[in-house]
């Protein structure tokens, strides 16, 4: 009897703690969520009343829309490369910036700059860096006798350019890793040093395992973010050249707000939703195997 009431209290406490989110979810999120499922089965032009069309949007998407498949492929390619490289770069940078060096806070600030500077300035500089004639990258390549590609204007390279650009924003995840690194008790390192572990061994056996909860976080967020990639393509390439950077979310935006095909866009959103949930589910399932919590 007593045990049960303790359990009830724990349940109540738990719900009390998550109440802000729960209320927000019920008030602000649940409605739009359910509405978009309904809309995905309608033709809806934003203004007129939605008209039920059954699964017609889904049928059209899966059987009659080559750009849908193209955009899915582009997004998968992007995710497959950008997520792992983002994690590796983020962790490496955080390890580097976690050192006790004079002026380290200046470096930290500099690496975070592309995340702060307005997109108008970053995109201009990025376009310059990748300028086929006079850009930084191709100038360096030319020193080695390599004629660089046309980057953003080449259908085989435009996506790679955007992946490259995503690494530029690594400062954001670097901060999170840095906060995580600072949470690793220093005693662990001291103990390891007494045991005679070298820098690599310490990184391999203490830092990385202790960082896995944060890596896990960035992996999940990176997955959700990568499938939702929109801004870079919207600002820099508008999906071109030849649809090579037509990201899923960009195509979805076009359908929703430019072609006023909100029903179709909602169907796209739910297909994307299922895909992301499958991937996130796999990551969540695997996490007990490699993520270390507590001690």
């Amino acid at each position: 009897m007593k045990k049960r009431s303790a359990k009830t209290i724990r349940n109540l406490t738990g719900y009390a703690f998550i109440a802000p989110w729960l209320i927000g979810f019920l008030v602000f999120t649940a409605g739009p969520f359910i509405a978009s499922i309904f809309l995905s089965f309608t033709r809806y032009d934003i203004i007129s009343t939605p008209v039920w069309v059954g699964a017609a949007n889904y049928k059209e998407l899966l059987t009659g829309d080559p750009i849908f498949w193209k955009s899915l492929l582009v997004t998968f390619k992007y995710a497959a490369v950008a997520i792992p490289s983002g994690i590796i770069a983020g962790v490496a940078l955080a390890l580097l910036l976690n050192m006790e060096l004079k002026g380290i806070s200046v470096y930290r600030t500099i690496f975070f700059i592309p995340s702060i500077v307005p997109v108008v300035a970053t995109s201009v500089v990025f376009v310059w860096i990748l300028n086929p004639n006079s850009g930084l990258v191709n100038s360096i390549l030319l020193r080695f006798g390599i004629m660089g590609p046309n980057w953003l204007q080449d259908k085989n390279w435009a996506l790679w350019s955007l992946i490259f650009m995503s690494l530029w924003g690594v400062g954001g995840s670097m901060i999170i890793y840095l906060a995580g690194l600072k949470d690793i008790p220093i005693q662990l390192y001291e103990a390891a040093m007494i045991d005679g572990a070298n820098a690599w061994q310490r990184a391999r056996h203490i830092t990385i395992p202790m960082l896995t909860p944060i890596i896990f976080f960035n992996l999940v967020m990176g997955t959700i973010g990568a499938f939702g990639t929109f801004t870079q393509a919207f600002v820099m390439t508008q999906g071109g050249p030849e649809d090579s950077t037509m990201f899923y979310s960009l195509y979805l935006f076009n359908r929703a707000w430019r072609y006023l095909d909100m029903g179709y866009a909602s169907a796209m959103a739910w297909i994307l939703f299922v895909i992301i949930m499958i991937f996130t589910g796999i990551i969540m399932k695997s996490h007990r195997k490699w993520v270390h919590y507590g001690n």
């Binding site: 729960l22 979805l252 935006f253 929703a256 866009a265 996130t280």
Partner: peptide, 29 residues
């Protein structure tokens, strides 16, 4: 930190709210 009933499913639900593009939830919101 609190093991309450339905915690994991609610957490998963919360993650799920991040996966639906804003472009389609904007109108109802």
């Amino acid at each position: 930190r609190i093991r309450f009933k339905g915690r994991d499913s609610l957490f998963y639900l919360m993650l799920a709210t991040m996966c639906l593009p804003g472009a389609v939830t904007m109108i109802p919101a």
